[in-house]
Design a protein around this nucleic acid. Structure first.
Length: 299
DNA sequence: ATGACTCCTGGTCTCATCCT
DNA sequence: AGGATGAGACCAGGAGTCAT
């Protein structure tokens, strides 16, 4: 059995990302005709047209879309294997943009410290924080995100993971709330006040409600908001309780609140940073991971 | 070991076709 | 009409084979 031509992988990666024979040819410094012939060989090897006409443009077939992320990974790995001694990392001259996918609560608490640390160590680096409406490993797989930060949940077996800190939920009240004068909150006090909860998907029941149900109790949900920062702001001005991770109390909104241990038991959460294996040995990415770990020590 | 030969791969050039 | 794509013709260079 003969191996396929592995040079085709590079061409496949560029063709799928450019979605154009001419564009891929330009990027690989080939003629359009040569690129066209390469595409023909790829079609023969894969048994799929890969790129098909759609008016003046070309579009990917479903099979090509399914190959896109894998091809990119393989090419990156291949380059890493063949470049045994990468150039040393120079932080002072490093020009790079890292995309971090995380929730806004993390940005509120750790964003400023991370940005300051990056500015000190690598002034040419830009941190781009993007919203995380749902957990999905696709963004890491497809290389659209460099780091994902949050609580691990079905991210896929290949995703690399490093715990940053452990966190627990607390009941946050405005400092001028009548219950704020107490040393701790009883379960009765906890359910005597309306609650505002943060839920990306609009779910209004969680571990706290399950724990309360064990005592035959329930709380009144007065509002559901999409983010912990919004929950704190609403709780502060509407005399509600917001159940948020303790780390959120370090944010600007959180500093105006008092956090009480929950009167019911809920599991701790571990906040981790996650990345794709192709970034494992990349020096700049390794530096970023170390920086995030350092700046996110137990809040 | 070396040179001649053959085959294959991948390049350019050119032109036809398709689409806006 | 003009741009993008694809395919055929042709050429150059590398790799393998074989005789010397």
């Amino acid at each position: 059995m003969t191996d396929p031509d592995f040079n085709l992988l590079t061409a496949l990666d560029v063709l799928l990302s450019e979605k154009s024979v001419a564009g891929a040819a330009k990027r690989l410094e080939l003629s359009a005709s040569a690129m066209s012939r390469t595409l023909a060989r790829l079609r023969q090897v894969t048994g799929d047209p890969l790129l098909v006409r759609a008016g003046r443009k070309m579009v990917l077939t479903p099979h090509a879309e399914s190959l896109q992320a894998r091809a990119k990974n393989v090419v990156t790995e291949m380059r890493a294997v063949l470049n045994a001694s990468p150039a040393p990392l120079s932080l002072s001259t490093l020009e790079k943009r890292f995309t971090l996918r995380t929730n806004e609560g993390f940005i509120d608490v750790f964003g400023p410290a991370l940005v300051n640390a990056v500015a000190r160590e690598a002034p040419g680096v830009t941190l781009e924080f993007v919203a995380k409406p749902e957990k999905d490993a696709r963004f890491l797989r497809e290389g659209r995100v460099d780091l994902e930060i949050g609580v691990l949940e079905n991210m896929g077996p290949e995703i690399r993971l490093q715990a940053l800190f452990r966190d627990r939920f607390v009941a946050a009240l405005a400092k001028n709330h009548p219950l704020a004068a107490f040393a701790e909150l009883s379960r009765e006090q906890f359910v005597s006040v309306g609650h505002v909860i943060a839920s990306r998907r609009g779910a209004i029941s969680g571990p706290v409600d399950e724990a309360l149900a064990a005592y035959g109790m329930s709380r009144r949900i007065a509002a559901v908001v999409p983010a912990f920062s919004a929950a704190l702001a609403v709780a502060r001005d509407a005399e509600l309780i917001a159940v948020v991770p303790a780390s959120c109390l370090q944010s600007a909104a959180g500093k105006e609140m008092i956090g009480f241990p929950l009167p019911v038991s809920t599991p701790e959460i571990t906040v981790s940073q996650m990345w794709h294996p192709r970034q494992e040995h990349e020096l700049a990415h390794r530096w970023l991971r170390q920086l995030v770990r350092r700046e996110c020590r137990q809040p």
